[in-house]
């Protein structure tokens, strides 16, 4: 099998809040179709790293590349806005707290961006909403407002909303952390299905079992440093770094 060129690449990412350095020179690459989990204790910088990929939390220094395009280009404000809004259409993101638009129905949530940003007609956008909702198994909720959905359903709609932009990569920022335990599985199932379709995914998660069963690679972060990275079997069963071992034993004891 031929080696892909890096699809997503982060080079020497640093991020400081005043004196506090939350990302310390992190570099990593993700291949097309690869599914990468980022694990680590709270405050380790994993969400900050994820949010740097679409420049939601801009890096202090370093570069983010997506398929040969520099995401965090330094441009005059107006040109930067044009550039980043274009790039973000290719980067889907799912948040811990769903962030569905409560004033719009499920259909409205999914079709808003394709209609406004890609100029789809309302028929085309509707068809897109139907397709994406079938993918997450919620077609029967198309005319519901978010307030009438369960947490798991909300997150599946949020995934459908991101997928409707046909992104090249999907970022998941603790997508199941805010859910009741019995609702986690339905969201994991949707993510598993995306994995089977070879969607490129970068997943920040606390769920080791899910990371182990779905991801191609696991990165362990602590204090703004990528401590170690490797296939889930090796990281979970035979970590080389002491800090990884300590984190995992602590985490497994607590869960």
């Amino acid at each position: 099998m031929e080696k892909n060129q890096p699809f997503v690449e982060i080079r020497h990412a640093r991020k400081c809040y005043g004196d506090l350095e939350v990302l310390k020179d992190i570099s990593l690459t993700v291949d097309r179709g690869e599914i990468v989990a980022i694990i680590g204790p709270s405050g380790s910088g994993k969400s900050t790293l994820l949010r740097a990929i679409n420049d939601l939390d801009p890096l202090t220094s370093g570069e983010v590349w997506l398929e040969g395009t520099l995401v965090n280009q330094v441009l005059p404000h107006h040109r930067y806005e044009k550039h980043i809004n274009q790039v973000r259409q290719d980067i889907g993101m799912v948040f811990q707290h769903f962030n569905l638009f409560p004033h719009l129905t499920v259909r409205g949530n999914i079709t808003l961006a394709p209609r406004m940003l890609k100029g789809l007609s309302s028929e085309e956008a509707d068809q897109l909403a139907v397709d994406q909702l079938e993918r997450v198994g919620l077609l029967d909720r198309i005319d519901f407002y978010p307030s009438r959905l369960s947490g798991g359903q909300k997150q599946r709609v949020a995934i459908a909303r991101a997928l409707a932009m046909k992104p090249k990569v999907m970022l998941f920022d603790e997508a199941t952390s805010a859910l009741d335990p019995e609702l986690v599985e339905e969201v994991n199932l949707v993510m598993k299905r995306l994995a089977e379709e070879h969607m490129t995914m970068i997943i920040v998660t606390h769920e080791m079992a899910f990371a182990a069963s779905v991801c191609d690679r696991v990165i362990f972060m602590d204090h703004g440093v990528a401590i170690e990275s490797g296939p889930p079997d090796r990281i979970f069963q035979n970590p080389t770094e002491e800090r990884t071992r300590a984190f995992l034993s602590r985490h497994l004891r607590n869960s």
């Binding site: 993101m93 569905l100 638009f101 961006a113 940003l117």
Partner: peptide, 9 residues
């Protein structure tokens, strides 16, 4: 944030 992530200005 959600809107900006989708590509809205």
């Amino acid at each position: 944030e959600a809107a900006r992530t989708l590509g809205f200005s």
